[in-house]
Simulated scan of single mutants.
Amino acid sequence: MKDNFSALAGGYSKYRPYYPPEMIEYIVSFVKEKHEALDVATGNGQVAIELSKHFKKVYATDISQKQLDNATQADNIVYKVESAEHTAFADGQFDLITVAQAIHWFDFEAFYKEVYRILKPDGVFAVLGYGLFSTNPETDKLLRYFYYETIGPFWDPERKYIDNNYTTIPFPFDEIEVKQFMNEFIWTFDQLIGYLETWSAVQHYTNKVGKNPVNDIKDALKISWEKSDKKVTFPLLLRIGKIV
């Protein structure tokens, strides 16, 4: 599993969009028992904190201590530094295992072997994510050129799984047909820029070229943003399954 986000942990915690509670509640509705849940690659703990409202105990793991240092705390959440593919949990421990916006970084074969080991026979496995957001036509034109052309060569190969809405990831589970979710926000210009700067390709570009590419489009973005309704819409990705 790659760690592209330790250096961005503060911004990740502040600017990354959250998942709507109704989406988490929908996932939880498929789970029979609500004893223990695991959120893998939890990042800032945004899914873990929502799960903590439904389960007696939630474990949340990440390979980045810096991410966990910025995670939201709750009495029934235990944060641990562990890789997704190798954990110290017991066989058949969890009623639910979730992965949000991270599974594309994993070694699929090793991770799924671990899921089959630590998930209860009647447990639920859920993959969440979000795709490229849309705003207003003028801003979208700027951002799509930026996404595909300016920083396009700097995305990790794994990004293609998100561009394909997670439909092409291996998924060796008895899959459940799910509802589609969207998430909408009203963002300030600072929130827009802050989110763009959490993109791993922006970090790769900055490290390789020696300058932040967001700065090159900031003025044009500000003009288009200030005359728009400032609405941001994310398509949400969701796959749910059970052990075959």
Rank of each mutant, 00 (worst) to 15 (best):
M1L: 06
M1F: 11
F5I: 01
S6I: 06
A9N: 05
G10A: 12
G10Q: 08
Y12F: 11
S13D: 11
R16T: 06
Y19G: 09
P21I: 02
E22P: 00
M23I: 12
E25P: 01
Y26Q: 12
V28E: 11
S29P: 04
K34T: 08
H35P: 00
E36P: 00
L38D: 12
T42D: 09
N44S: 15
Q46F: 04
I49Q: 02
L51Q: 03
L51I: 05
S52C: 10
K57S: 08
V58K: 10
V58A: 14
V58Y: 14
A60L: 09
A60Q: 09
D62F: 03
L68N: 11
A71T: 08
A71D: 12
T72V: 14
D75M: 13
Y79Q: 03
V81H: 08
T87R: 03
T87N: 06
A88S: 13
A90P: 01
A90V: 05
A90N: 15
G92W: 00
G92Q: 07
G92C: 02
D95M: 03
D95E: 13
L96F: 12
V99Q: 02
A100V: 04
A102I: 01
W105R: 05
F106W: 02
D107A: 13
Y112P: 04
K113A: 15
E114C: 07
Y116M: 10
Y116T: 04
R117I: 09
L119Q: 05
D122F: 04
G123K: 01
V124Q: 02
A126T: 10
L128V: 07
G129R: 01
Y130I: 01
Y130R: 03
G131T: 04
F133K: 06
S134L: 07
T135G: 11
E138I: 09
E138D: 15
T139V: 14
L142H: 13
L143N: 11
R144V: 08
E149Y: 06
I151W: 06
I151N: 06
I151E: 08
F154S: 11
E158Y: 12
R159E: 07
K160G: 11
Y161D: 00
N165W: 04
T167S: 08
I169N: 03
I169F: 03
P170L: 09
F173E: 09
E175L: 01
I176T: 15
K179M: 12
K179H: 14
K179G: 08
K179E: 15
Q180T: 15
M182L: 12
N183E: 15
E184M: 11
F185A: 12
I186H: 15
T188I: 14
F189I: 04
D190T: 10
Q191D: 15
L192V: 11
L192Q: 09
I193Y: 00
W199K: 00
A201C: 09
A201G: 06
V202D: 07
Q203W: 04
T206N: 06
P213I: 05
V214S: 12
I223N: 14
W225D: 04
D229T: 13
K230I: 02
K231W: 02
K231M: 13
L237V: 08
L238W: 02
R239I: 04
